[in-house]
Amino acid sequence: MVECPECAAAMNVASDVEQGEICMCEDCGAELEVKTTEPLKLELAPEAQEDWGQ
């Protein structure tokens, strides 16, 4: 379990989560980026930029 940095909800994050992975808080819908896996630390993911995408 880890705390959402946006709404402080307790989040379940997959055990195989990777550094740099984007996940979403089911409570507030915030997009979060995994900064470190040990210890597990999440931060708000950056907003999509103009040149992002496929």
Binding site: E18, G20, E21, I22, E33, V34, A45
Partner: peptide, 13 residues
């Protein structure tokens, strides 16, 4: 080479 890991990158990994 990736700056963000999305579902697509995880599948590739």
């Amino acid at each position: 080479l990736c700056t963000r890991i999305r579902g697509d990158e995880k599948l590739l990994f």
